[in-house]
Design a protein around this nucleic acid. Structure first.
Lengths: 144, 144
DNA sequence: ATTTATGCAAATCGTTTGCAAACCT
DNA sequence: AGGTTTGCAAACGATTTGCATAAAT
């Protein structure tokens, strides 16, 4: 995992009056390693820290924009590194059978259409959109 | 609420070996009335039945494709009538401040692009998409 | 009459929180 | 030392479930 990413994250935490402890680093590394959103249980297992600390740290990291909370089709919350850290805008393939969540990117022009739709909605309704969330739901390869 | 919709729902329940009881009818009517996804608590209040029955019936209705479960930005599950019953394909405006969820429709050509993206993903990855979910997250008019 | 739905209260389970000990600066 | 983070165990809250009664067919 790139060292400058660690510095970026450390800075983001510092701006929020938070420390970049070893436990938090382990969490970030687990999320970076996986390439897909992880459930709290998965993070717990991989990050080697107590469950209360895992949840608390995920909360802190979310609060300062390092981690993003993702909701799939099941009851489990999932976590991933913020897109502006990974420089990798993506969407999710959600399996309605096993609940797994995988990353996917879509065509450039679809992204542009999505942006345009957000602008349109902003002008049409009183709602001010900040970002979008596109999920494709279906069956993953192992559940077909 | 149109009578033929009730018949359609009754048929869908019957196919699943389920009955269209008065409690279930009240639930369906509450969802139809609102025009946006309702939380279990809202359904409970409006539908006038015990919470266990509300949850159980929402589950049954979901199981036979009458009701659809929606996940917003908060911890509460939300429910709406299935799109193929309302004949109204739509997406959601999710307020990240108060958690409210409103319906919205987007331009025809965006929908076509979304369909195309699903086909593309299906051919590129081992994933077989069934439907898509597009949410615009931001601030609603009352939270601006 | 038999099967299914209801309501109450208790259980479940992911997540959150209180608190004392360990940690960082 | 002063404030923060950690881990354990207990609390929390939305949702689910067991069971006896009421309703539907």
């Amino acid at each position: 995992m790139p060292e400058d990413l660690h510095h970026l994250i450390a800075a983001r935490l510092r701006d929020d009056g938070q420390r970049y402890t070893s436990g938090r680093r382990r969490l970030v590394e687990a999320l970076d390693r996986s390439g897909r959103p992880l459930t709290a249980a998965e993070v717990l297992e991989d990050g080697e820290l107590a469950q209360s600390s895992a949840y608390r740290n995920l909360s802190v990291l979310e609060g300062c924009g390092v981690v993003h909370r993702v909701s799939g089709a099941d009851e489990f919350g999932r976590f991933e590194l913020a897109e502006d850290l990974t420089e990798h805008h993506h969407h999710h393939l959600i399996c309605t059978s096993c609940g797994s969540v995988a990353d996917v990117t879509v065509a450039e022009d679809l992204e542009r259409s999505l942006e345009a739709a957000m602008v349109e909605v902003a002008s049409t309704t009183g709602f001010r959109p900040d970002h979008h969330r596109l999920d494709l739901l279906g069956r993953c390869a192992s559940c077909l």
